[in-house]
């Protein structure tokens, strides 16, 4: 059992959790994730390590409520509660670059996984420019933390409630045109990573993305997470999750993410019914 030591709302349906997981905290490096199972009927869901503290033995997870499990975490898991399983750190570490200017483009809840990467790049002595985008101001979080590890920071929102009223690809394209950029990281929703990758390809700048396909075990034994990267089938959980964005078959990734739509709706409806019944 892994105790939740802190929980903080970062946005309407986005929470930051501090969870006890000493072994994971000791071994974690940027780019990796954990698989979490809330209870003995729970699904195994992958969540990126947004931060960790080896001395305190804790990991930080930032979770957006999108379906049954993440909603359950949002509504029913609080400080003092235990999470049954936290497995990791899983996946390959980010392959960092060591000089020049790097753009770190994060969309929505992708800001959380981007933070440790940007921090590590900064420690390498790289000039880090962050571009953070969200639909609106209330969905933007960790701006201060990102500012600490970025030399420059650009904010965008779809509705213009804060920063530029634009998609992240706009400042990305401008910066790629104006500066000498060594490498780009893009982390966020699949569609956002797809367009960022296209923008980078056009500018001839290498781009790394973090894929988020559906996973089961997260240790390479099932193949649920397979993605096509440069004509090869790769298992995102053990070969990735980071891959060169220009080589990813995005249509496939996006289609596979929707494979369980009906079942996910069924699980969520059932969960909502249970919550309602428990309340009445």
């Amino acid at each position: 059992m892994h105790q939740i030591l802190a929980k903080q709302a970062l946005g309407p349906e986005i929470d930051e959790f501090q969870v006890e997981a000493p072994r994971v905290a000791q071994a974690a490096v940027p780019g990796q994730f954990v698989v979490v199972r809330l209870h003995d009927r729970g699904e195994r869901v992958p969540l990126t390590l947004a931060d960790w503290d080896a001395a305190a033995g804790t990991v930080t997870l930032v979770v957006q409520a999108v379906g049954k499990t993440t909603r359950e975490m949002h509504e029913r898991y609080d400080v003092g509660d235990g999470v049954l399983d936290v497995v990791g750190p899983l996946g390959e570490p980010s392959v960092l670059v060591h000089e020049g200017t790097v753009l770190c483009v994060a969309g929505g809840v992708g800001i959380a996984p981007m933070y440790p990467i940007a921090r590590a790049l900064k420690q390498e002595g790289v000039r880090v420019i962050g571009i953070l985008g969200a639909r609106s101001e209330d969905l933007l979080f960790w701006v201060d933390r990102m500012r600490e590890v970025c030399d420059e920071l650009v904010l965008t929102t779809d509705d213009g409630s804060v920063g530029r009223k634009a998609l992240v690809t706009e400042p990305l394209a401008e910066l790629l045109g104006a500066r000498e950029v060594a490498h780009v990281w893009a982390v966020g929703p699949a569609v956002m990573m797809k367009f960022c990758s296209a923008t980078c390809s056009k500018a001839g700048v290498p781009v790394t993305v973090s894929l988020n396909p559906i996973m089961v075990d997260g240790t390479g034994m099932c193949g649920a997470c397979r993605a096509e990267v440069g004509d090869r089938v790769r298992f995102a959980c053990v070969d990735g999750p980071e891959f060169p964005g220009d080589q990813v078959n995005w249509e496939l990734l996006i289609a596979r993410l929707a494979a369980y739509k009906e079942e996910e709706r069924c699980a969520l409806d059932r969960y909502r019914r249970m919550v309602r019944e428990a309340a009445s």
Binding site: E43, R44, Y260, E263, A267
Partner: peptide, 27 residues
Amino acid sequence: IGVYSANEFLTRVNLMRAWQFPEYDTP
């Protein structure tokens, strides 16, 4: 979509108990 390794299919059903979905969360 619809192509499984036997490992994935059997893991979902046996280890994750998908045969008891939605009482168990994994479909």
